[in-house]
């Protein structure tokens, strides 16, 4: 088997995450799909790092994890703030901003 199988897997997971963002309505689940996309990118980094034989990809993966953790904190704080105001985390209810 080929190392590029990992890259296929990463592309597939990325696609699933990208579609999940569009399809789901719960803001937290949408954010989880974004996390899946970031994880897919991490897998791609690690695989390419193995292919090219340098550790830059792993370092990039490491930074991604840190950044994702910070993003999660901020994102969930915003979602909790909205939930407390509206008693709902569904993005359908957040529809004051219409044309």
């Amino acid at each position: 088997m080929d190392v590029s199988n990992y890259v296929y897997l990463s592309a597939l997971l990325f696609t699933i995450g990208a579609i999940g963002v569009v399809v789901r309505r719960n803001a937290i689940v949408i954010f989880m799909c974004v996390e899946l996309m970031l994880n897919a990118a991490n897998l791609a980094f690690v695989t390419f790092s193995r292919i090219h034989g340098n550790l830059s990809g792993q370092v990039a993966s490491f930074f991604t994890m840190v950044v994702a953790a910070c993003e999660v904190v901020v994102g969930l704080a915003i979602i909790v703030a909205i939930y407390r105001s509206r008693r709902s985390a569904s993005v359908d209810d957040a529809s004051l901003l219409k044309r």
Binding site: S10, F14, A27, M37, L38, A41, F48, G75, I78, I82
Partner: peptide
């Protein structure tokens, strides 16, 4: 507005990162 900006911004940052991974590849 904050929620929308955040979700769409995180979405596009994920695309940026995957693009960076492919360019690294």
């Amino acid at each position: 507005a904050a929620l929308k900006y955040f979700l769409l911004g995180a979405y596009s940052s994920a695309f940026f990162l995957f693009g960076a991974a492919l360019l690294y590849g």
